[in-house]
Amino acid sequence: MVMVHGDNKGLVLPPKVAALQVIVIPVPYKDADTKGIFDACAATVATLSEAGIRAEADLRENYSPGWKYSNWEMKGVRVVRRDNGEKTDISRVFLVEQVKGMLDKIQQNLFDAAKQKRDACIEVVKTWDGFVEALGKKKLILAPWCDEEDVEKDVKARTKGEMGAAKSLCTPFEQPELPEGTKCFASGKPAKKWTYWGRSY
């Protein structure tokens, strides 16, 4: 998850699994009522927490707001939207509604981006030559398989090298159509299912 979603600014976590979803940072200005600002931040956190949103306020006075922004962004907490960098003004009146909507959008955007990356890495093959070629391109391979342990052992032996041997990774629950007469890519025996393959690093 960290490798898929992280970027050069630091950690990016989907809201559903993030321990902390929102960080509230006060921005005091010269001659400001600091206590009033801090109280407003605490009230904002209380409102969000009551709505089931995991939120905290960073009220440390020995760090500037800019330092806090960078610190929390590296940890993957939403200072600005970490999925696209967008900044949005939110009314206190519609705080919970808008924050929940934003978190839902972030969750969906991250899922869509990860799925797009994954799908771009998948290559469907039906022959041994196609399998070897896709393996050389570091693809996630979807191939028809006879589902025999000895055949998988043979695949491992035939692909063993500096980059690691190929092995079966998982079988998709939603199976693509397997036309009658489809052969296993490795053994030539009748295929029983589609299976994902890749190198074991």
Rank of each mutant, 00 (worst) to 15 (best):
M163K: 07
A46H: 06
F111G: 10
T44I: 11
S91G: 08
D31F: 05
R82F: 05
L48D: 07
K16W: 11
P65N: 10
E73I: 07
K138A: 14
Q107P: 02
A134P: 03
G66V: 01
G85F: 07
W197T: 02
R60S: 14
R78D: 11
R158V: 00
K126F: 01
V132C: 09
G188M: 03
L59C: 10
K192N: 13
V77N: 04
N8G: 14
R54S: 09
P190G: 06
A57D: 06
T171V: 06
R92S: 14
V79T: 12
V151S: 10
V96N: 02
A114V: 05
W194A: 04
K160N: 06
L59A: 07
W72S: 01
T34D: 15
N62E: 14
T182K: 02
W197Y: 14
A113T: 09
R92W: 01
M1H: 13
I23E: 05
V96K: 05
I90N: 10
V27W: 11
D119A: 08
V45T: 07
N8I: 06
V45M: 10
M163G: 01
G188I: 03
A55V: 07
P179W: 02
R92G: 03
A120R: 10
P172V: 05
E61C: 04
T88C: 08
P28D: 10
E50F: 00
S91W: 04
A57G: 09
L48M: 15
D150V: 10
V77H: 06
K30T: 11
D150S: 15
Q116V: 00
N84K: 11
S168C: 00
L110N: 08
